[in-house]
Simulated assay, not measured.
Amino acid sequence: MELRFLQHDAGAVSLNVAMAGEPDAPLVICLHGFPEYWAAWADVMAALADDFCVAAPDQRGFNLSSKPEGVERYRVKHLVGDLASLANRLSPDRPFVLAGHDWGASVAYAYAMAYPDRVSHLVIANGVHPVCFQRALLEDEAQRQASQYIHRLRAEDAEALLSQDDFRRLIRMVEGFSAADFFDDAMKAAYRETWRQPGALTGTLNWYRASPLVVPAPGETTGHAMILDMPEDQFAVPMPHLVLWGEADQALLPVCLEGLDRFAPRLTVQRIAGASHWVLHEKPDTVADAMRRFILG
């Protein structure tokens, strides 16, 4: 795969964007999650580049993109604004395919809800719809337990702890969600380099701090979350929607998919056996083949 990179001025921030495929081919924008960067999609990009123009930005706070100071700068409206600016540059006149994993899925959902006419197809790989995830956190004890790490990442001392011993805890976090056979020494070195970028650790952690998600402690009784008070039609994704779900995900449990069809009337769910939360690394050809079939029909 021949990669090229562009720096996109999104107004408040500059985004580093990896590109593959012919510029005039149908556009697919791929959004990574935590604690990754654009290369989370690298193997999938390589498999799609013959048919599509694939763009994978470092989202704000990550790797070589801007890292604005302050938690407020990582609210979802700003993350969606970054994507909207990039999409308007790369595909100003026609809808495009939007794909997201983990936190990238959250941005993809938010953009698809705000700009449904701009998204021809929505692909989510082990990511969650915000209403479905919030309900799972409030109502399902297993998902609540699985998400307790969020409190650790929101803590004031998270940067100090995660950077100790050459990012030992961040490495362990990746490896803790699966066997992580893909996470070899070369990839660990590349990821450490992204985490060492000035301001990157705080920028990436601010995604968690800025999120309105309510994550109750185990056994805590709480029935309120702001998002559940909002009209459900605000969270609709009317375009064709594919969810690719690694069945061995230990961070996001299958309960997170319950009720998704209420928001996505054109939903397809493809479960992938033998894949974890890191499905993009473990099964990139499976992900790419499923995306190609879904997009091209």
Results as ranks from 00 to 15, higher is better:
Met230Asp: 10
Gln250His: 10
Pro254Phe: 06
Gly219Asn: 05
Gly246Glu: 00
His241Arg: 02
Phe235Ile: 13
Phe235His: 03
Thr222Lys: 07
Pro238Ser: 10
Gln250Ala: 15
Met226Ile: 09
Leu213Asn: 08
Leu228Asn: 04
Val215Cys: 11
Val214Met: 05
Pro212Asp: 09
Glu247Cys: 10
Pro254Leu: 13
Leu253Trp: 03
Ala251Cys: 15
Pro216Ile: 13
Asp229Ile: 09
Pro216Tyr: 07
Pro240Phe: 12
Thr221Ser: 14
Ala236Asp: 01
Phe235Gln: 07
Leu213Thr: 11
His241Glu: 02
Glu247Ser: 12
Pro218Glu: 14
Glu247Lys: 15
Trp245His: 01
Pro238Cys: 04
Asp229His: 09
Ala248Ser: 08
Pro212Gly: 11
Leu213Ile: 10
Ala236Thr: 05
Ala248Val: 12
Leu244Gln: 00
Glu220Gln: 12
Leu213Cys: 12
Ala251Phe: 07
Leu228Glu: 04
Glu232Pro: 01
Pro254Val: 08
Gly219Asp: 07
Glu232Leu: 06
Val215Arg: 00
Val237Ile: 10
Ala251Pro: 02
Gly246Lys: 00
His241Cys: 06
Asp229Glu: 13
Met230Thr: 11
Pro238Gly: 08
Phe235Asn: 01
Val243Ser: 04
Gly223Ser: 10
Gly223Trp: 02
Met230Gly: 06
Val237Tyr: 00
Pro238Gln: 05
Leu242Gln: 01
Ala236Met: 08
Glu247Asp: 11
Thr222Asp: 10
Ser211Arg: 08
Gln234Leu: 12
Ala210Ser: 15
Val214Gln: 08
Val214Tyr: 02
Asp233Ala: 11
Trp245Leu: 06
Glu247Tyr: 03
Pro216His: 15
Gly246Val: 00
Ser211Gly: 14
Pro212Ala: 13
Ala236Leu: 05
Met226Lys: 15
Ala225Pro: 01
Leu252Gly: 03
Val255Tyr: 04
Met230Lys: 14
Pro218Lys: 11
Ala225Ser: 14
Gln234Pro: 03
Asp249Phe: 13
Asp229Val: 09
Ile227Tyr: 06
Gly223His: 09
Leu242Ser: 00
Ala210Asp: 07
Glu232Arg: 09
Met230Val: 06
Glu247Met: 12
Val214Glu: 01
Ala236Ser: 13
